Structure formats: structure tokens, C-alpha cells
Simulated assay, not measured.
Amino acid sequence: MVLHGSMKMVPTDFCGLLLPVLAVAFLFGSTAANEAMLCNGVKTIHSSPNGHSTGYITSPNHPKPYPAENMQCTFRFEPKVGEQVQLTFSYFNLRESSKVPATQNCDLSDSIKIFIGTTRSNTEHGNQVGEYCGRTHPEIVMAVSRPLTVIFTVRAKDNPTIGAVYMFKAKYTFTKDYGFKTHAHQNHSAGCHFTFDGRRELAPGTQSGNGHFDSPNFGGLYPFATNCLYTFRAYGNQTIRLNFDKFKVEGHHDCRRTEDDFLYIKDGEMSKTDWQNFAVSAEEDPVKRETSTTLFCGLRNPPPFAAQQKVVNVIFKSGQWRTNTGFRGTYHFQGHPGVYWTRSSTTKSTTWSAGLTLLALFMLSIAQTFSSRS
């Protein structure tokens, strides 16, 4: 007796050298029932031992269309503490219901739901980032030290489109850089803390340097429950100016509601109290109760910022409930830093060059030597 792909028990006898071909086909073939059975369940994915790994998740039967069988596939990514997992969909086209189009809602269509675990989750999988169906391409998402769950549900069978390729493919990446590609120094012990050194930022042969800094996972949705610190340090007679080109941070009015995400600019060094506040969550941060400080959230760009001090700290905090596309800021160092080094724009290597201060000290030393001999 063997089990056929139709999931029915059919008595079949074998003798001599006759192989049970149908049984082998069920175990290793690609029938719709087999694909559905293999899909149901939970697949847990971890990073490699060194903390960096990349791979793909796909719909069953990929690169062919997935079968029109009731099924639910669950992929659960579990980054370690201090790690992030980023998920990017490269292809997305799911079967829609003819009764309720996917443009209205996903109730009757095949769909993907994405969840990120938080300490205040409202479902067993975490807080829902979104539900996607039809050709509505999911945003790039990221989870920080928390599980990220993708649930693929097949339920629509009444609206097959001839020639349509129903499937999805997504790339996952475990990383520790918060999706922030920069030459700024990252303080890994503090997590999302990046320092921009005015001496390193100078363009070759100039006294100015420019660049950009982003919310984590910029180009997608910033992660839940994340604190980021961007420190800018000027030297000599350098000045620091900041501008914001794009800004979509969840929050309303003065950004002081418990659930509001926010950005805060501090002109000067971080005090002990500042560091203590940086460690707490966005919901509990005492800075929201200090009416003398200006917080930024919503859809309006913060105004241009000209620092009065040699150090500027930009703090970004997200809560556990909502997300958006975040921000992109630009920084500008202007002036001579004294003894400095510059970064070559062609070779990306670091070139050391003496500043005017070092030259002056050297000439003074020579003059003193000759003076003492005379």
C-alpha cells in the first residue's frame, strides 16, 4: 500500500523487481499536493556563526507558479542580540480574488503578512508591519535583535490569469550595520552609534567635506524599537551644518505623545544624563517631558541646523508600534581642522597630510635650535 499525491490510501501490490514508482514520485516529485504539504509549517532561519549571512526565501515551486492549494508557509528569522535582519523582495505577484480585488483588501486573495516581534506585541508573531497581495510590492523591512516573521497564505482559486507567473522571491541579509553604508566609525558596543570625524571628511585639496546620514534601513521602513546616535566632530576652525532632504517619522504635533517616534538635535557633548536617556525606549524618554527641547517628527523637514559647538549629536528613536520611511540628512564640515588627514575620492584610501599648525610648530622648533646655538 502506498500514498498517492492525491492524499488517498490506495491498495497497491508490488512483487519481484517491480519498483513502487508512484511512491517515489510522491516523495520527490513536484505535484501540487506535495508542494502544499512541504510548505505548511514554520521554517526558522538564523545567521551564520560569524553573524553575516545572506539567502533567499521563495514561494513553493519557484521559479514556476506556486500551486493553487490551500496552504500557509511561515518563515521566521531570528537575529542574535546586536544583529539585524533585512528582507528585500525582488519579485512579487500573488493570485487575486475576483470577488474582492487586491486593490481593496487582501481578505480573499493570496497574501503575505510581515510581523516584527516587540516587547509589546499585539499578536503571537509580533506587531504587524503590513499585509501585501496582488502586485503590491512589500517595502524593505528590518528587525533589530528581534524575530521577523513572514506568513504566506494561499486562499484564492477563482481567478486564474492565463500566462501570469504567480510567485515571490525575497533576499534576507543578517548584518550589524543597520543598513547604513558609510565610512563613519560605528561604535558596535553602543549598537546604532556612528561618528563622523571632520578631519576624515575633507575632500582632497579642500577645506570642506560633505556626506549624508540616514535612518536605519533607509530606502525601506525603519525598524521598531531602535535608538540611533549620529555624532559629528569638528576640529580647528571647522564648523558643522546639517540639512534634511527627506523626512517621514511617525508622530504628531510636538512629538511628545508616548507612541511618537522622534529626532532630536543636541548642540554639544552628550552628558551622563543624555547617555542614560539614550538607553531608554522612545516611549519612556524623559526628553519628551522637557518643553525647552525641540523634537522633530511627522512629514515636515527639520530646518537647517548650524552648530555653535564643535560637537553635534543627532538622536533618532522609534517606538514599538509604527514605522515609516525615515529620514536622509546631509552634513557639511567647513574650515581648516589643523593637523588633519583627507580621504581620496578615487582610491578610497586614507592619505595623511600635514596641516599648517604642524608646519608652524616645526619651523618654530628649528628657530629655537639655531637660537640656542648662537
Rank of each mutant, 00 (worst) to 15 (best):
L358W: 11
F316K: 02
S318A: 13
N324V: 01
S345F: 10
S189A: 11
Y235E: 08
K169N: 10
N237A: 10
K64M: 13
R257G: 07
N217C: 09
N122Q: 12
P63F: 04
T346S: 15
T330E: 15
V2Y: 03
L108M: 12
G55M: 09
S59N: 08
S208C: 06
D197R: 01
P303F: 11
L229R: 08
G326Q: 06
N105V: 07
S318D: 04
K43I: 12
G251M: 02
T175M: 11
G198I: 00
R120M: 11
S48L: 14
G326K: 00
F77Q: 01
F370A: 09
T123K: 01
Y66S: 04
M167C: 10
T347A: 07
S109Y: 03
A184C: 11
N127K: 06
N61R: 15
L94C: 06
C297R: 03
D13Y: 15
K266I: 11
V10N: 00
F180A: 01
D260Y: 01
S189F: 08
T103L: 11
S365P: 00
C73W: 00
S98L: 08
M1C: 03
H4V: 01
R199S: 05
G205W: 03
P65G: 01
A367G: 10
P67L: 02
V144H: 11
S48E: 14
E283R: 12
M363H: 13
A354W: 14
Y56M: 09
V21D: 09
L242V: 07
I57N: 03
Q334W: 07
V42Q: 11
F75Q: 01
L27P: 00
F316T: 01
M363C: 13
G205C: 04
G251Y: 03
F278I: 15
S145V: 08
S30F: 09
V339S: 14
T369C: 09
Q207P: 01
D158F: 06
L94V: 05
K266W: 02
K348G: 14
S345A: 13
T54R: 15
M7V: 12
E131Y: 03
K169I: 11
Q276H: 14
Y340W: 09
R256Y: 09
G198Y: 05
T54H: 12
D260Q: 02
N105E: 11
L19F: 10
G126V: 00
E69H: 08
Y166G: 03
R300Y: 11
S208L: 07
A225H: 10
S292L: 08
K317T: 05
C255G: 03
L108W: 05
I315G: 00
A225V: 14
D158G: 07
E124P: 05
S6G: 10
L148Y: 00
A190Y: 06
M1V: 02
A36D: 06
S47W: 02
R95N: 07
C255K: 03
